[in-house]
Amino acid sequence: MSKSKPPAGCPCGGPALATCCGPFLDGWLDPARQPPTAQALMRSRYTAYTLGNEPYLLATWHPSTRPTERIIDPEESLQWLGLEVKSALRLRQRKVEPANPDEDFVEFVARFRVAGKGQRLHEVSRFLREPDPALGGAARWFYVDGEFPEKA
Rank of each mutant, 00 (worst) to 15 (best):
residue 49 Y to D: 12
residue 13 G to W: 10
residue 64 S to H: 15
residue 101 P to D: 15
residue 89 L to H: 06
residue 14 G to F: 09
residue 78 L to N: 04
residue 55 P to E: 13
residue 50 T to L: 07
residue 91 L to V: 01
residue 15 P to Q: 15
residue 27 G to A: 08
residue 9 G to C: 06
residue 71 I to W: 01
residue 1 M to L: 06
residue 24 F to K: 03
residue 52 G to P: 14
residue 102 D to K: 06
residue 49 Y to H: 15
residue 90 R to A: 02
residue 56 Y to K: 06
residue 94 R to N: 06
residue 150 E to Q: 10
residue 82 G to E: 14
residue 148 F to W: 11
residue 38 A to N: 14
residue 45 R to V: 05
residue 29 L to W: 09
residue 117 K to I: 04
residue 26 D to V: 01
residue 23 P to D: 01
residue 12 C to K: 09
residue 7 P to N: 09
residue 141 W to R: 02
residue 45 R to Y: 10
residue 76 E to K: 02
residue 47 T to F: 09
residue 33 R to S: 03
residue 69 E to F: 13
residue 39 Q to C: 01
residue 10 C to Q: 04
residue 133 P to T: 00
residue 16 A to S: 11
residue 96 V to G: 00
residue 95 K to F: 10
residue 44 S to K: 13
residue 83 L to S: 04
residue 45 R to A: 05
residue 37 T to M: 13
residue 87 S to F: 03
residue 107 E to S: 12
residue 54 E to A: 00
residue 135 L to S: 12
residue 58 L to H: 02
residue 135 L to C: 00
residue 79 Q to I: 00
residue 133 P to S: 00
residue 126 R to C: 00
residue 26 D to W: 05
residue 127 F to L: 06
residue 18 A to R: 13
residue 109 V to D: 07
residue 104 D to S: 15
residue 16 A to C: 12
residue 129 R to K: 11
residue 148 F to L: 05
residue 52 G to L: 00
residue 10 C to M: 05
residue 123 E to P: 08
residue 104 D to M: 13
residue 138 A to H: 14
residue 111 R to A: 01
residue 50 T to H: 04
residue 60 T to V: 07
residue 95 K to G: 13
residue 86 K to D: 14
residue 142 F to C: 06
residue 84 E to D: 14
residue 57 L to Q: 04
residue 5 K to L: 13
residue 118 G to E: 04
residue 13 G to H: 10
residue 5 K to I: 12
residue 77 S to D: 03
residue 70 R to C: 11
residue 59 A to P: 02
residue 105 F to D: 05
residue 7 P to Y: 08
residue 137 G to H: 13
residue 147 E to V: 09
residue 4 S to D: 12
residue 129 R to V: 01
